[in-house]
Design a binder for these strands. Sequence first.
RNA 1: GGCUCGUUGGUCAAGCGGUUAAGACGCCGCCCUCUCACGGCGGAAACAGCGGUUCGAUUCCGCUACGGGCUACCA
Length: 486
Amino acid sequence: MKIRTRYAPSPTGKMHVGNLRTALYAYLIARHENGDFLLRIEDTDQERFVEGATDLIYRTLKDTGLKHDEGPDVGGPVGPYVQSERVKAGIYQRYAEELVAKKEAYYCFCTQERLDSLKQQIEGKEVMVYDKHCLSLSGEEVREKLAAGVPHVIRQNNPREGKTVFTDELYGEIEVDNAELDDMVLIKSDGYPTYNFANVVDDHLMGITHVVRGNEYISSTPKYNRLYEAFGWDIPVYIHCPLITDEEHKKLSKRSGHSSFEDLIEQGFLAEAVVNFVALLGWSPEDNREIMSLNDLIDCFDYHRISKSPAVFDYQKLRWMNGEYLKAMDPGNFRKLAEPVIRETLPAFADDESKLEKLCAMVQSRVEILPDIPGMIRFFGELADYDTAIYCHKKMKTDEASSLAVLKELIPFLEAQEDYSNDVIYQALSGWITEHGYKNGYVLWPLRIALSGLATTPCGATEILELLGREESLRRMRKGVSLLGG
RNA sequence: GGCUCGUUGGUCAAGCGGUUAAGACGCCGCCCUCUCACGGCGGAAACAGCGGUUCGAUUCCGCUACGGGCUACCA
């Protein structure tokens, strides 16, 4: 049988990385077996609906490469793929009534006040177990209330005795006492189905074979199975994915600043890197590879290897992985990404084709995320104030005094040089250094400091000379001399 | 509180009764080098605890501890 999985988000805002991973796993499971991957929009909560969130879902799926075969925007044979539209078609009401006829569900007319009175405080938490009050209503009474337009819901009628067992592909068999299964609401008083009901009905009607979802649904799964059984439907394969947490082992929240795909993209991460990273949060391939494209993932994805324990979102490692993607990029493609950033930081350099190319090259091997670039190259545009202590370097055997002396010696020599291109100036300097019996670092370290005002730069002294040119270089060296008290 | 799930270095994560308990990020050291980075080499660092089962447990079972989830007319 052909595998069919689905991603079924609620349009309530940005895509949480936990949801992204669930979507990714659902996608990979389907693609690995040449199955279908569909998108269904679960907008049954009118309160939480956010305008534009559906478009955001389409865009995110597109940016991540998780192409769906069926969905609201692409159509398909089992639509509509938006639950609010299915409500209008009367789908859920029809199935709920079927359950009522089978005594597997019943109308409930209890007021909010009565429901509240059932609540108890346990350990500071509110716990409510419905008492099946309306189950005892006669058919007559129900008809009367319905005719009178009394607000109502439809509840699932769960037994109080016995056990219900279900199997999760990852967690194995899970057995729950039926006494734990409360009579959850299937159809709300506004006529919309709850997630609990719509999910089961739609997964069946849409032919979903593998239900991939977050761990938080594991404890309500027995109730879903009772629904499948009441209808006489096949129970799907369940795959419950573990949580993704922050460094404090708490559910990744908006507070962390990187809880959604959109946040990460804004922070300069590449979609491919995010997908790759998220795939490895809770799953690993047999061969221990880490850098994998979406196609690589499709090839080797085996859902049995999904981990059962929650994973901490390691921002550091994501940065590293993003850097790997940037470094492996074709220089031409990297340039497309880097140029706008360089242009914004150093407009004058970006207009010079040869300088732009050099900047791109020097930055590509050391950048982890694009926003790192300005900090690395800003000094080319302007020499910021610096502490002369950075002239001291133990290994280079330099200090302020030696640096001052070297710079003063060097200025006339560099004044005499015409060609500042890297190779030429490097040759010239090397000659000068050996002539004077110095070590490379003894001269080049202070020179680099004077030119950049930084202990760390994305390139060596001579490359800076080349990009800065003769006049600006000399100016900065003189500034260094004066800062050093010369 | 009840139910339920989880627990291998700081983090991700191999392992599926017998291993010197992989690998990666991060960290530290060395090498390379006109600094940093890249690259190369090396290092520190883990089976939550206690009981079983077994000739033998990180691996199987139980208990405890800790953490998560559910306990909504939210998904």
